[in-house]
C-alpha cells in the first residue's frame, strides 16, 4: 500500500510517468514554468521602464493622457482577439487530450490565425504612430513604448511559430493523446503572452496619468 501511495503521488500529473521529476510532473513542464517565471522579470523591466519614462520625456514633451495618443476602441478589439485566442488554445488542448486530432488541429490553427490578427493590429498601430511623428527614437516615451509592445509582439510571433510547428510538424506522426503535453506547453506559453497583454493593456493604455 505504501508503494501505491508513492506511485499515486508521483503520477498525479497527467500520467506522464516516463518523464517525471521528483514532484510528479514532466521535466519539460517544469522547465516551461521556470522559463515563464523568469520572463516575468523581462516584462517587469520593460513595463517599469515605460512607467518611469511616460512622464519623464527626454525632449521636454508634456505627455497628456492615453486617450490623446492611443486608439482605445481599436486596441480593445485587439485585446478581445487575444483573449479569444486563449479560449481556442484551451479548446485545442482539450480536443487533443480527448484524442480528437481533427478538432485539435482546427483550434490550433484558429489560435495562430487570431495571433496573426493581433500582430496585424499592432503593425497597423505602429504605422499610424510613425505617420504621426511618434517613431522609436522620437523621445524616451516612444522608445519605452515601442520596446515594450515590440517585445510582446515578438513573443506573440514566436507563439504563432510554435503553433504552426505543432500543427505542421505532426502531419506524419499524428497529433494524438501522446502529444498532449507538447500542446499543453505551447498553450502555457500562449496564455502567458495573453496575461502579459492583460497587464500592458491596463497599465499602458487605460490607466490615466493625472
Amino acid at each position: 500500500m505504501a508503494s501505491a501511495t508513492v506511485a499515486v503521488g508521483h503520477g498525479a500529473d497527467h500520467g506522464h510517468e516516463e518523464h517525471e521529476t521528483n514532484y510528479g510532473m514532466s521535466n519539460n513542464k517544469m522547465a516551461m514554468w521556470l522559463f515563464l517565471s523568469s520572463d516575468c522579470l523581462l516584462f517587469g523591466a520593460l513595463i517599469s521602464t515605460f512607467l518611469l519614462y511616460r512622464t519623464n520625456i527626454s525632449d521636454g514633451t508634456v505627455f497628456t493622457e492615453p486617450a490623446d495618443v492611443f486608439d482605445i476602441p481599436f486596441t480593445s478589439l485587439s485585446s478581445f482577439v487575444l483573449l479569444m485566442s486563449s479560449l481556442t488554445m484551451v479548446l485545442a488542448l482539450s480536443a487533443v487530450k480527448r484524442g480528437d486530432e481533427r478538432n485539435g488541429r482546427i483550434w490550433l490553427l484558429t489560435t495562430a490565425f487570431l495571433g496573426m490578427v493581433f500582430i496585424g493590429g499592432q503593425v497597423y498601430e505602429f504605422t499610424i504612430f510613425s505617420a504621426e511623428g511618434l517613431q522609436y527614437s522620437t523621445n524616451t516615451w516612444t522608445s519605452a513604448f515601442f520596446t515594450l509592445t515590440g517585445f510582446h509582439g515578438v513573443h506573440v510571433s514566436v507563439g504563432i511559430l510554435l503553433l504552426m510547428g505543432t500543427v505542421f510538424g505532426t502531419r506524419n506522426s499524428g497529433l494524438g493523446k501522446e502529444k498532449s503535453e507538447a500542446v499543453e506547453l505551447v498553450g502555457l506559453y500562449w496564455h502567458f503572452v495573453d496575461i502579459v497583454w492583460v497587464i500592458i493593456f491596463t497599465v499602458i493604455y487605460l490607466i490615466p496619468i493625472g
Binding site: 517544469m30 514554468w33 521556470l34 515563464l36 517565471s37 520572463d39 523591466a45
Partner: peptide, 9 residues
C-alpha cells in the same frame, strides 16, 4: 514557481 518570479519582479 510562477508566483516566485512574479513577486521577485
Amino acid at each position: 514557481l510562477f508566483v516566485f518570479g512574479l513577486v521577485l519582479a
